[in-house]
């Protein structure tokens, strides 16, 4: 690991100020990806700005059909939250299935979304639920936030402060874990909302999380798992690696979608 300057500001404005004065700063929002990346020398920032003391970023609120989760809220907190469990149980389930207990006790929703790992779980929920990513300077709709593998439309120094999830009529998440890493080989979040069904797949696409429109069309006609067997998922733009080629991933998107729909319909 290369040397860097570590700081732990107590407010959002201080964090942004430190970032502005540094040569090459990175925010740390839990560090579950950043620390290993630093140790391997894959990132060599001059400054690491730990957001762990910025208390205004932590917490969960439910009001008027929206679940708002502060960016520094840990996965374990979301998983255990009664508010989230009542409003969007699929979101609590998703959070409870991220990594292992240590990761869930350190990792945060903001960190996950800023990193935008193509195999992370949260991007599926954000895109599937059409959530809004709130930053220190603006609000970004989910569709405009994700910008390919490990890429987002965040500007340099911009900090995610919260994520606003509209409460759907029903939703479900199903993940097929990579046999080695247990990241999502394919994870599908399905949400039935007043404006239609949204299906978002993570772990599968070459450009990160994406909406599976053929499945959305089928589910808008009939929100049940069984009819999905006849839907062919296009393999274009799906990842191929030693654990799953594009054909297998395409197949798993269908299977995981069916399982997510079954869960949304209360049949696991």
């Amino acid at each position: 690991m290369e040397d860097f300057t570590y700081s732990r500001p107590a407010s959002l404005s201080d964090a942004v100020a430190v970032h502005g004065n540094a040569d090459d700063a990175m925010y740390m929002a839990g560090g579950q990806t950043l620390i290993p990346v630093l140790k391997q020398g894959l990132a060599m920032p001059t400054d690491v700005i730990d957001l762990g003391a910025v208390w205004q970023l932590d917490g969960i609120a439910v009001s008027g059909g929206t679940v708002t989760i502060g960016a520094m809220t840990r996965h374990a907190v979301v998983a255990a939250s009664n508010d989230v469990g009542r409003a969007i149980p699929a979101l609590a389930t998703l959070a409870g299935g991220i990594g292992d207990a240590q990761v869930r006790n350190r990792g945060t929703i903001g960190g996950s979304l800023a990193n935008n790992d193509p195999s992370a779980d949260y991007p599926a929920a954000v895109l599937g639920l059409n959530a809004t990513v709130v930053t220190d300077r603006r609000e970004l709709a989910a569709g405009g936030y994700f910008d390919g593998m490990f890429a987002t439309s965040l500007e340099p120094g911009e900090i995610i402060t919260a994520v606003k999830f509209p409460v759907p009529e029903k939703a479900g998440y199903a993940k097929f874990p990579n046999p080695a890493s247990r990241y999502a080989l394919v994870g599908v979040f399905v949400a039935k909302t007043a404006s239609g069904v949204r299906v978002a797949a993570t772990g599968a696409g070459q450009d990160g999380v994406f909406r599976v429109t053929v499945l959305e069309d089928a589910l808008n006609d009939d929100f049940r798992a069984a009819p999905l067997r006849d839907v062919t998922i296009p393999e274009d733009n799906l990842m191929t690696d030693m654990h799953a080629d594009a054909a297998y991933r395409a197949h798993l998107i269908g299977v995981m979608t069916a399982r997510a729909v079954a869960r949304a319909n209360g049949r696991d």
Binding site: N178, P179, A180, S181, Y183, M242, H243
Partner: peptide
């Protein structure tokens, strides 16, 4: 798993080597 062309180790970490 080694890459058959380059001889690079594909399963170089626990992310890909499935214990």
């Amino acid at each position: 798993v080694y890459d058959p062309d380059t001889g690079q180790l594909v399963t170089g970490s626990l992310m890909d080597y499935g214990l």
